[in-house]
Nucleic acid binder design. Structure first.
Length: 856
RNA sequence: GCCCGGAUGGUGAAAUCGGCAGACACAGCGGACUUAAAAUCCGCAGACCCUUAUCAGGUCGUGGGGGUUCAAGUCCCCCUCCGGGCACCA
């Protein structure tokens, strides 16, 4: 290849001017992602086995690298690009490190947008969904994502959702799936019920502006609360998960230890059971407060028309506050029922009130009010003139005695036989006493509620239950396992929006009773789509299994997921459901692991002009546009370079252009020296200082990037270090041209450079690998091995400080001991000048780091 | 109110274990090449002061205040602001 400066510069200019890449002979080609990328895309697409996971007998250690599966909305957005660029770099790196990698992809394909699109455009949901899947798969391929498509999972296919139904039946058998009437969240936009986890700040998770209503409906629930303690305790062991996510889940589960205490209702057979975390303050209880919906409150209301009206008023206030997410700010109102409850500890009669701030669905829906030691109770007591009675001594005897003491800890007073006990001890003993005397018990409550999975929508998994008119019209009966899948009818009219669309499909609804063979109706609600995503990653290990959700041996080989990557928006939703599902599957004997993922990484958002990209803000940057202009390699590499992966990333197109320029420089350099491959990456010899320098920088870069992959994941600095290496190569270009650097050094430099680039810019790496005629597939070649001897510096620069201020930098041989470093520092002219006329009090020498002279 | 993050040049950021603050880029400025522009290549670049054509030198500087230390972006205490989660949860 001709290497005259003339052709290098002049030739290149000419080509750029003509905007043509069809280089004339003797003229170097320029970097053209538009040509390289489709070429390699075709090669990779042609061989489905290329990124397929190997069998259990591969002899390699396994590595399950997983990114959260996308919803097929129609097009990938930058958040996807970032998410999958991180996962793909990791997967490719692990392949290169010799692991058997599972890196699958699928589609979270059920859901409301498909129905909405159908309503809007008249396209059947299935057609809309598959059209989108095709478009997005194309984008994935364009981006060069190394997914194992042989294990693709599409949740809206009967092959998949039949197992949702199967799991549902298993859960029903074990009492983990049940039906009950309760207050549920209703999104008027979605026209369906939502789980608690899908209500964020009182609003729908899909409709930020839509306030969720509460409705009384009979719904299917999954008993996630059975696992509440295990879900909570398991968090302590999930050290590979972000602390933030663990905290969010802890808050969500909301475990609270306390006691139940029965107050009998004076002159009635009724009992009011209160939940309290502070049973030690019970001698300070001056009233009992009931939620407006409490059964006892309702019973009182039946006897008293006026009271009923007032209680209903309180309920309305509470519901309004709930719906507008203003429960915390509600003005406390209450009504005295005129009835009394008896405190079982001291036999005292205290008035029973109904209050608007007491929630029916937390604890028992009833509390004992202790105004002296609870701020809310104090506020209420002040308003209605209820007595305030202190039962915990002030820590400071000198402290003025205020009505509301706020003491939370100390010694009990005015509490009968319990006086003198420390609060903590009293809590334990009093709860035990209550239990022994059968008027209470220690207990634990949770904020976590069972997972409501019924959706009054069409595009989802049919719930495999039937109701027989004859046998038991209100009792659901499971369909036989052999009947599965209960197919979702495809040709249906969904233009009516009220009620479950399936209810209008006679051929779906009408069936026969599994018990009596008579007429029966199918359940017409479908399952929450979060059911689909709760176990999809197990299906990836055995996606074509027609006899079971997956083979246990296969799942046990791959699980737990070694690295799971996705957005933090699923910290509670998807990630708590999947943990639950894994525990259920474990208890069914299907898997051995307790947790689905050993390590979780939540990447930051992609923002533009300081705000999350959204259509309404008009700040959306399309990945296609970026690929069009700069190529897929530059686009994904920028997504990794612009910020560390866990932080938000501000998208700046100039930055993508910068990465593209960098890749052009790499391309030019590798192409220029590709013929210096005679020696290939063999033994190294130091023919010159320049060669040694270059080799040192190379091995330092290998060390740095290898380290980043194994823990820190600061790929922005990995890429920066490749840039530094390339800058060094550029700086040594003249030396290479002058023959001062041995061919085998040059060869190793370019060979390793290509490999280091491979996880970040796979298309370019593949092209350069081929151009330089290196052997094998670069993505299966061993990751470059760092040689500490080559990476070691001969000389190090040691900053010298005087009284902590930098004065100069001295050079000493690497590994110099304290005495040498100190001598060099003291001998330095600048240091001498600074120290002159003063006394050196102390010399701090940190070998390899710095010297600090303390002078007076 | 409680809990978890975060704040570093014009911008994105780096500094991994307490040891040269600002690596690497983007934008900018200057230069080379060019009739010219684009592209490319080379160089400059925290703020301020002194000098002032330089060369060189000095002071300050990682949201604010205090502390520990020979040495603090990093550790400790207090505070401000921003993002996120939970919230009359008894």
């Amino acid at each position: 290849m001709p290497e005259t400066p003339l052709t290098e510069k002049g030739g290149k200019t000419a080509i750029m001017n003509e905007n043509s890449s069809a280089a004339e002979p003797n003229q170097p080609q320029r970097y053209s992602p538009a040509e390289i990328e489709p070429k390699w895309q075709a090669v990779w697409d042609a061989d489905a086995s290329l990124y397929a996971a190997e069998g259990h007998d591969s002899g390699k250690p396994k590595y399950y690298c997983l990114e959260m599966l996308p919803y097929p909305s129609g097009a990938l957005h930058m958040g996807h690009v970032r998410n999958y660029a991180i996962g793909d770099a990791l997967a490719r790196h692990m392949w290169m490190r010799g692991y058997n990698v599972l890196h699958p992809m699928g589609w979270d394909a059920f859901g409301l947008p498909a129905e909405n699109a159908a309503l809007k455009n008249g396209v059947p949901p299935r057609e809309w969904t598959f059209r989108n899947i095709e478009a997005m798969k194309k984008q994935f391929r364009r981006l060069g994502m190394a997914f194992d498509w042989s294990n693709e999972v599409t949740t809206c296919l009967p092959d998949y959702y039949r197992w949702n139904q199967w799991f549902f039946l298993k859960m029903f058998e074990r009492g983990l799936a049940y039906r009950k009437k309760s207050k549920v969240n209703w999104c008027p936009d979605c026209q369906t019920v939502l789980a608690n986890e899908q209500v964020i700040g009182g609003r729908c998770w899909r409709h930020e502006d839509t306030v969720v209503e509460l409705r009384d409906l009979t719904q299917w629930f999954l008993r996630i609360t059975k696992y509440a303690d295990e879900l909570l305790e398991g968090l302590d062991k999930l050290e590979g998960w972000p602390e933030k996510v663990r905290t969010m889940q802890r808050n969500w589960i909301g475990r609270s230890e306390g006691a139940l205490v029965d107050f009998s209702v004076d002159g009635s057979a009724e009992t009011v059971t209160v939940f309290t975390t502070r049973v030690d303050t019970i001698f300070g209880a001056t009233s009992v407060q009931l939620a407006p919906e409490h059964a006892v409150a309702k019973a009182f209301a039946l006897e008293d028309e006026t009271l009923r009206g007032k209680i209903e008023g309180l309920l309305v206030e509470q519901q309004k506050a709930r719906e507008s997410d203003a429960l915390g700010a509600i003005e406390k109102h209450g009504v005295n029922t005129g009835r009394f409850a008896v405190n079982p500890f001291n036999g005292e009669r205290v008035p029973i009130w109904v209050a608007n701030y007491i929630l029916a669905d937390y604890g028992t829906g009833a509390i004992m009010s202790v105004p002296a030691h609870d701020e809310r109770d104090f506020e209420f007591a002040q308003k209605y003139g209820l007595p305030v009675r202190r039962v915990i001594a002030a820590a400071d005897a000198e402290a003025p005695v205020l009505p509301y003491t706020a003491e939370e800890d100390g010694v009990l007073v005015a509490s009968g036989e319990w006086s003198g006990l420390e609060c903590a001890a009293a809590q334990e003993k009093m709860a035990a006493f209550a239990k022994a005397n059968e008027f209470g018990t220690p207990t634990v409550t949770y904020r976590l509620k069972d997972w409501g999975v019924s959706r009054q929508r069409y595009w989802g998994t049919p719930i495999p239950m039937v109701y027989c008119d004859k046998c038991s019209p209100d009792e659901p009966m499971p369909v036989a396992e052999s009947e599965l899948p209960i197919l979702l009818p495809e040709q249906i009219d969904i233009t009516q929006t009220n009620g479950s669309p399936l209810g209008r499909v006679a051929e779906f609804v009408n069936t026969t009773c599994p018990k009596c063979g008579g007429k029966a109706r199918r359940e017409t609600d479908t399952m929450d789509t979060f059911v689909d995503s709760s176990w999809y990653f197990y299906r990836y290990t055995d996606a074509k299994n027609a006899k079971a959700p997956f083979d246990s041996d296969k799942a046990n080989y791959w699980f737990p997921i070694d690295q799971y990557i996705g957005g933090v928006e699923h910290a509670i939703l998807h990630l708590i459901y999947s943990r639950f599902w894994t525990k259920v599957m474990r208890d069914l004997g299907m898997v051995k692991n307790d947790e689905p993922a050993g390590r979780l990484f939540t990447q930051g958002m992609v923002i533009k002009d300081g705000a999350k990209m959204s259509k309404s803000k008009g700040n959306v940057v399309s990945p296609d546009e970026m690929i069009e202009r700069y190529g897929a390699d530059a686009t994904r590499m920028y997504a990794l370079f612009a910020a560390p992966p866990d932080r938000d990333l501000e998208w700046q197109e100039e930055g993508v252009a910068g990465i593209s320029r960098f890749l052009s420089r790499v391309y030019r350099l590798v192409m220029k020296y590709k013929d210096v491959s005679a020696a290939k990456a063999g033994a190294t010899n130091f023919s010159s200082d320049e060669g040694r320098l270059l080799l040192r920088k190379l091995h330092q870069t290998v060390a740095k990037i290898t380290d980043d992959f194994s823990g820190r994941w600061h790929f922005n600095t990995s890429i920066a270090s490749i840039m530094i290496l390339v800058n060094e190569i550029s700086a040594q270009e003249a030396a290479i041209d002058a023959g001062k650097i041995a061919d085998n050094v040059v060869s190793q430099v370019f060979c390793f450079l290509t490999l280091l680039l491979a996880p970040f810019a796979p298309f370019l790496a593949a092209e350069l690998w081929e151009q330089a005629e290196y052997a094998g597939d670069p993505f299966r070649i061993t990751w470059p091995v760092y040689d500490p001897d080559l990476a070691r510096e001969d000389e190090v620069e040691i900053p010298v400080q005087v009284n902590g201020k930098l004065v100069n930098v001295v050079k000493v041989p690497a590994g110099s001991g304290e005495a040498v470093v100190k001598a060099a520092a003291i001998a330095d002219e600048k240091v001498k000048a600074r120290v002159e006329g003063k006394t050196v009090v102390k010399v701090v020498v940190v070998p390899g780091k710095l010297v600090n002279l303390v002078v007076k």
